[in-house]
């Protein structure tokens, strides 16, 4: 991999730090009136998700990390791994629970996800921003009650539990924002 000097550090650049793949979030150049210049760099550890700040002498460099983001189709889970496929090459990848994290509750077969590969292995999985999922369990719907504004918990086909309006019933398909876990509407409507 190429190596990058502090003045090439940009948000989104993937580098190796202390043996861990990291994504740079922010890079601040500071220098006293005279003397040593520093770069205060915010990074996200892509293995742990932890964000921290490391200071470098300006001009120091880090190795790039072999990290790429790819759009893949979610296939299925066997309980231990979640399986994804590159749609063009049909190449398959299996992601473990630490890579999938909380995303598992939004994964629906055949949906397109962003899979981050590190040295060819899934490191993290981001579901689509919006998914459409079926309600598998909720209190009976209050027909016609579209105005009261109340809501109730509903369990979705992936296991996620979200809040939905009172008028929805089991078997209906809803649209959810996976970034907030919020109900957006009935599927097919906006």
């Amino acid at each position: 991999m190429a190596s990058y000097s502090t003045n090439e550090f940009r948000s989104g650049l993937k580098v190796m730090l202390d043996g861990e793949p990291c994504s740079i979030l922010d890079n601040e150049f500071v220098k006293p009136g005279k003397g040593q210049a520093f770069n205060r760099v915010k990074l996200r550890n892509l293995n742990t998700g932890r964000v921290w700040e490391r200071t470098f002498k300006s001009g120091e460099s880090l190795e790039g990390a072999d990290v790429v983001d790819r759009t893949m189709e979610y296939l299925y889970t066997d309980g231990e791994f979640w399986h994804f496929m590159e749609p063009d090459t049909f190449e398959q990848f299996q992601a473990d629970a630490s890579a999938v994290g909380d995303s598992h509750q939004w994964l629906k077969e055949q949906d397109r996800c962003e899979v981050t590969l590190y040295n060819g292995t899934p490191l993290s999985v981001a579901p689509p921003n919006f998914v459409e999922l079926e309600i598998v369990e909720t209190d009976p719907g209050l027909k016609g009650d579209t105005a009261s504004g109340g809501n109730k918990p509903a369990k979705l086909s992936t296991g996620a539990v979200i809040k939905v309006p009172l008028f929805l019933s089991q078997g209906e398909v809803v649209r959810v924002d996976t970034r907030t876990g919020e109900y957006q509407g009935r599927a097919g409507k906006s």
Binding site: L17, V30, K31, P32, F38, T55
Partner: peptide
Amino acid sequence: YADTGSMAGDRDLWLDLLMTH
């Protein structure tokens, strides 16, 4: 005050670091 990893340097380096950070 700062995570500097394996940074090494003379007195002035650390003075500059404290000054800027």
